[in-house]
Structures are given as C-alpha cells and as structure tokens.
Amino acid sequence: MKLPTFDYHAPTSLAEAVALLAASEGSARPIAGGQSLMPVMAFRLAQPSALVDLRHVPGLDSIEVLAKEVKIGAMVRWRMIEESRELARVVPVLAAAMEHVAHYQIRNRGTVGGSLAHADPAAEFPALAVACDAVIDVVGSKGARAIKAADLFTGALETCLADDEIITAVRVPVWPKRRRWGFQEFARRRGDFAIAGIVAFYDLDQQGLITQAHIGVFGATDIPRRLPNAEAALNGQEPSEALFETVGDVASGEVNPQSDIHASRDYRRSLVGTLTKRALAQAAK
C-alpha cells in the first residue's frame, strides 16, 4: 500500500532533530534506513505526523574501535558491519551474524539504530547487543543518557526510549582473544524473520573450564534476552557434547514462547534447545 501522508524534515544537527521530535509531542518519528519503518507505515501500523530523517546529522555513521569497546554509530548500515575487518577482529560474532539480517538490498540501507529502536523480537542485532552487554547511547531534550541493551527493550516493538530520544551509538565491549562463539538462527526461507535464534559465547580459563558464558535468545521471546540458567549450567564445566545437550535442554525450559502463524509454542521451545546445542558445538570447534 502507498504510504500515509506525513511531513518530512532532514535536520543537519542532532539538537535540531531532537527539537523537531519534541515539538511534535510524540507524533513524529525519526527515520534512519527506513527498512523497518517504511513497511510498518505501508501497513498503517504506524502513521507518524512527520518523519525526521537523520541522514544529514553528522557523526552517526562510523565504527570506532577503542581500547576496551567498539562504538558503532546509529546510522552504520549492516553492509558496513559485514565488511569491517576491524570489527571482525574485536567482536567477530557481529560481522558473522549479518548474513542472517534480511536480504542483500536491505543490508545496504538498514541501520543499527533503526533496528534497535524498532525492537523487533525476531531481529538479530537487538539480541547481539543484549548478549554482548552493549550500552546504547541516546540523546533527547532532557540530555544524553546511556542505557544497558538489556534495559532498552520493554516488549515486542517497544523500548524505554522517550518520544524525543534518538539513539546515537551502541557501544560493545571488545572481546578477549580466543573467546569461543556460535550464532544460529532458523527461518523457513533465507532472509525471513527468525522463528528462533541463539547467540552464544564463552571463555576458557587456565584449567580449560568454561567461564563468562553468555547465551542470548531472539525470535522465541517477546524481547531479546539472556538465558541465565543455561549460562549457569555452562560456567565452571568442561566443554563436551553431553554438556551442550544438557544446556540445550535448560535453555529450552527457560523460554516461554508464543504460538503464532509461523510456529507453535512447543516447536519454538524445542528449536531454542536445538539451536543452543548447535551454537555451543559451533563455539567449541
């Protein structure tokens, strides 16, 4: 369907963008790549009075690798993450997961900030941010604040962002060398929304035992989140097929998925277990 009518602004500074959003009293929406917002508007699931385009706002489109963290600007597109060698070196799972994000053409436009703000429960990047303990930088009319990724998402397509707040960057801690990781997603066709997905990583201590286990789930829950019981079952253990089997079962029992047209609750729950096992096996390779 054709888009509903709206006013269009392309401010050249963050302050101006925030002011436009604040003046609209919640009826305007920022637009970055538009790869989620445009379809949502085409379906009339959103009818903003105005779009505040961030494309002329400077300083939002770079990837900066610092000593302890990597700062990814909100307007960084998937293609940039996919191709950033530096990022692949410091947080390898990010680049590797990109092949699962929608399709080629959409990865040329879709952005980090847009995906986080859209908060689709089946999206990859929100889950990566949560699993990697990322921090989201936002700016609004009341000033700047940093939000833990795990606190950003409050429900399916819902975040704790105020109407006049704009995501400016996501900061991801740099990984220790030799961190083990796996990323697994299941969708019926390539590029489709995930029915379930798992991001898993851990370190090995000097005795070869698992430490710092992180398991994040998406698609099977209303918000992306970590699975603390499954993580606890991993920590302190020696990696083995049997252990991963057990942890998969724990993960399965730790989610309470919804049934929908794409998959039943039981199917999704089972999938979470299977994908957890596969992600851990991938990590151990």
Binding site: G34, D53, R79, Y104, Q105, R109
Partner: peptide, 21 residues
C-alpha cells in the same frame, strides 16, 4: 525485490526509500 535499483553503487529496494531521500 522487483523494485530494486542501484543507488550510489548499491542495490536497494526503491519501495523502501523515499524519493526525497
């Protein structure tokens, strides 16, 4: 994907981009 065009060298979906953009 039927509406794909090339914008600044990159394939994009022209139904997901505003003309003003």
């Amino acid at each position: 994907g039927a509406c794909t065009v090339i914008v600044n060298g990159e394939a994009v979906r022209s139904c997901l981009m505003l003309a003003v953009q």
